[in-house]
Amino acid sequence: MPTSHERSSPERRWSIRAPQNFAGGISLIALAALALWLMSDLPRGTLRSMGPAMLPDWLAIGVGLAGLALVASSFKPGEALERWSLRGVFFILLAIVGFAVTIRPFALGPIAIPGLGLAVAGPLAIIVSGFATPEARLRELVILALGLTPFCMLLFGDLLNLPIPIFPQSLTGLFPADWSQKAVLRATAALMIVGAAAVFFLGRGHKADQVDVAVQGGRG
């Protein structure tokens, strides 16, 4: 197997040894070790009747060897490690996990979250993830959230009848009892759009140009 110099990313190229290859190699070796450990109690079987562990074991060994080769190649000059952005990663992960635990009832050990539906989970995901960039502006994100969410609610819940939870079950009591599910959905969506418009017009005086852009995003 040839050891190669690594220059995978065109943006940066300052040459010290090759910490990137070193870290990559170590990660592969760790992954291989993890796989071998996880597979250790399963039978490998024979060629005639292969067990569940035979192929994964071979693959893990292959991954480990590739990792070793990478580590070896890291003693030649190569790519440095890139800069990390913790802020972006953190808010994005938080937003996705936030969506996952609020879309329907969720319980993990002592923590229990009632299902809040798309009406809450959607805006939550948009606003939290928006803060992944330092350029975030809350007002813009609120408009985006209140504009896009009802669009999705109408598309999935009303037009396509998909079984995606739309709003907190506990809130259905707030609407007149003889309203159908659809009517509640449309009313909620309308309310959110009105909310978006309200926020939009309230702040229009200051930053009209950026607001326009936000609305364009809302159509997507």
């Binding site: 994005i92 969506f99 959607g122 993830s129 997507g220």
Partner: peptide, 19 residues
Amino acid sequence: VPYRLMFPAILMFCAIGIY
């Protein structure tokens, strides 16, 4: 659309789509 607005939307669509 500026990226600071684009990516939260992508993210929400991803979450809804996969769910």
